[in-house]
Amino acid sequence: MRSLSRGLSLAASGRLVCVSRRSSVTASTALAATYASANAVPCSSLSSSMAASAHRASAAFFHTSRVHRAPSDVSDDLAKDLHDIICHDRLVVFLTGTPSQPRCRFTAQLVDLLDQLGVKYSFFNIMDDEEVCEGLKAYSDWPTYPQVYVDGELLGGFDICKTMMLDGTLTTMLKDKQLI
């Protein structure tokens, strides 16, 4: 179980390159503007540099991801960060709080469920980063937390994990993927 966060921790991990990002105020403003707008705001208009935006756009074109993504909903920078966090480990959970200090009952129950299964996982405390919290809802088309990702793919929230646990498909899937 390892804690994930952007910035220093990601850079220190050695496997991920910490992407330099715009100031949080600017990014938040851009994100808020996107959601406030009646029409979808093109991603390129959110970028401060047209050249950098074109590069990221071309990079995104060749990038394949199993996670549902609507480019108009999140900026390229944020999408890159979200993808990096989601793929940081084979099993990644986004929690409200931390496993030792959960901030809602679903997070607490999910942590208990994962501990019961004995799986290794990484977690991200979405209360540490409002931008990730709101951006991931749009990025994955899932409006609530906690969220569980397996091998970069959204598994669902606590309700889905609980249902799969009760009918046995969760343990079957994890064994097939050799996670337990």
Binding site: L154, L155, G157, D159, I160
Partner: peptide, 8 residues
């Protein structure tokens, strides 16, 4: 439909 599709 898969569970996640149903919930979505």
């Amino acid at each position: 439909k898969s569970l996640i599709q149903q919930h979505r």
